[in-house]
Every structure is written in C-alpha cells, then in structure tokens.
C-alpha cells in the first residue's frame, strides 16, 4: 500500500516529549510492514514550527505545519478537524500518533469525522488482507489480535513501545498551510492553566514509596512520606487507598491512575493486582514489603522483605539517618 503515513506530532505549546517521537518509530514499523511509502509529520500550531527541524531525523520527508489563529494552544476539536481535513485532502495510507491522552483524543476526533475505524494502543502490525494488528486492552494487561479494514488506517502506538530514536540529520521539506477549521473548533480550547506541583512529582521521581491497603489509614502514610522525603522521592498508592480517601487520586498508580517508570518502586502493603501492576511495571527495580510472602507483588518483585511495613519503614529511615550522620 503506497502513500503517506501522517504522523501527528504531539506537543504542548511547542514542546515535544520523547513519547511524541515514539510515533515515528511506529511509522517506520508500518513502512517495514509494507504500509505506506513515506512519512509526513503534521505539526499543529505556529508555536511548534521549530519542531519541523527535528522530524527529518526521525524519518519524515515532509513536515506540514498548520497555522491558524485558533491554533494557539491545544484544542482537541480543532486538532481533530485539522487531521480529518488532511485525511480528506491527501488520502494517506495511515495516520498515527502515540497513544497518550492527547494522541488518542486527537485520533478519536479525526476518525469520528472521517468515519474511519481507529485502533488505539497498537504494539505490532503485519500487512495482509487489511491490516493485522495487536493492541493492548485492560490498560496493558491483555493483548487483542485484531483485523483492521479501512481506506486509511488510523492507529495510535502504545506508549513506551516504539523507539523515539532519530537516525540521522536528514531535513524534511517544510510546508506551511492554513487549514479550514469548523465553526465550532474553538469550543474546546484550553482557557487557563494552573500549576500545582513544583519539583519532584510522581511521574518524574527516581524513587517512589507506594502504599496499599496494608498501610491501614491516612495517618499510616507518615512513615512512607518520611522515607520518600529522605530519598528525594515521591509517594504513590493503590486504588484501595484513594477509594478510602487516604491519599488524593493524583497519587494513584495503575490502570486508572498514573503510569510511572522510576528507578526503584517500593510497594508497601500492595498485593500486586494486574490493574496496579500495569502502572508500575516499567520501573527498573521493584522492592515489595508485605506481610504475606505469597502476595503477587512479592512473587513479581526483584527484591522483597516480609513483614509489617509499619515496623520496617521507620527502621529504614532510621538506618539512612544513622549512615548519613556517620558518613
């Protein structure tokens, strides 16, 4: 199947993350599978023009920069309109983005407008009759084998699955265009932003000290907070904890919480249900602290300590202070 693969480049006011470039790794995988013959980057909003200089190295031959006075910040409907118009005008072989909140949202809008199917969070593809693909369900704990039949394949790549590496210093040809936006495109635009967290956050911390039902209460988190502070880390938790109101939902790790990838995840009193595991399985190392040596988390963790977290954690903080004092 010849034609372009459009890659929607996710960015926030001109800043792209590593996940944004993973979509190019996915596009190159599609090329290898025989879908499409070239890669075209779609960069929405004049504030992101500088990204056009980056995409050639990721394999794009062409960068399409959409300029419009309504495209001054992220706006899901307007972004979806832009991508749908490109599908109508250019009849690409495929349209892809990384399966982040924004990536999936924009492709949902574009596919709805174009009346095309949309396969989200894909991890593998092979061409044949239609497109054979594997996508993740249940937040990553189950794989679905599916077949996509469509004039244009609309696909998001599961995050952290495809390479964001750039292969060289090739430059893409840059074309600026002014899309025709629907009259209602500006209805869903960011009108304000509020910054709450400063410094280390759950998603950026190198060490996360996380608690589950075994912590027992809101106050029970004191030794977890103490240890996280000593290590310059962050506190996480399971859904049982947020359901009980012991910690805010912004601390929740898992399928319906955050996906994190710290150096070390310390799981205290967490049993290791699949919906929790998918949120922290990208951690480099896992230490489980649990009274039950049969707990799933203990079996899956690289390191484990069996016992009561309320006795173990204060002893760990004490030991750290002792070593620091004598160092």
């Amino acid at each position: 199947m010849s034609g372009e693969i459009l890659v929607v480049v996710e960015h926030d006011r001109g800043v792209a993350l590593e996940t944004s470039y993973q979509a190019f790794g996915f596009a190159r995988t599609l090329l290898t599978a025989g879908v499409g013959s070239s890669i075209t980057a779609v960069i929405i909003g004049a504030d992101a023009d500088a990204l056009a200089a980056e995409v050639g190295a990721h394999g794009a031959a062409l960068a399409l920069c959409a300029h419009h006075s309504e495209l001054s910040d992220y706006a899901p409907e307007a972004w979806g309109d832009v991508v749908a118009a490109l599908i109508a005008d250019r009849s690409p072989a495929a349209v892809v983005a990384t399966g982040t909140d924004r990536g999936n949202e924009v492709l949902a809008h574009a596919s709805a407008l174009a009346d095309l199917p949309f396969a989200s969070n894909v991890i593998a593809v092979s061409a044949g009759d239609g497109l054979a693909l594997t996508r993740v369900r249940w937040g990553g704990s189950l794989l679905e084998q599916a077949r996509l039949d469509a004039a244009v394949f609309v696909l998001s790549a599961a995050a952290h699955t495809f390479s964001a590496e750039s292969s060289g210093a090739d430059a893409a040809v840059i074309e600026v265009f002014e899309p025709a936006l629907g009259a209602t495109a500006s209805r869903t635009r960011i009108v304000d932003r509020v910054t709450l967290a400063a410094g280390v956050t759950l998603t950026t911390a190198a060490v996360v000290v996380s608690g589950g039902r075994g912590v027992g209460s809101a106050d029970g988190f004191a030794p977890l907070i103490e240890l996280a502070d000593l290590l310059g880390g962050a506190v996480g938790c399971s859904r049982v904890v947020t359901n009980n109101g012991w910690r805010p939902h912004s601390d929740q790790v898992g399928q319906t919480g955050k996906r994190i990838a710290p150096e070390l995840y310390i799981a205290c009193g967490i049993s290791g249900a699949i919906q929790h595991w998918v949120g922290m399985m990208a951690a480099k190392h896992v230490l489980a602290i649990n009274t039950d040596n049969e707990a799933n988390m203990v079996g899956k963790a690289e390191y484990a300590v069996i016992g009561d977290l309320h006795q173990i954690l204060p002893a760990v903080s004490e030991e750290i202070r002792r070593r620091r004092a004598t160092a």
Binding site: L142, L143, Q145, A146, L148, L287, E302, V305, G307, A315
Partner: peptide
Amino acid sequence: GGLTTLSFDNAAEVVVQTTMLGKGPEAAP
C-alpha cells in the same frame, strides 16, 4: 465498523527470581 477482534492473548508473564532481603525491621540495613 472496520476493526474486528480475532482473539486475545495474555501479556507475557514476568518471570523474576525474587531476592529476599530479610524479615521484619532487621532487614533495614
């Protein structure tokens, strides 16, 4: 629509050799 589910598979099971660091507060060091 155009996306047809064919079958399901379990994601690969993590197989790790868990290193036991000890029991109770004595494991702190």
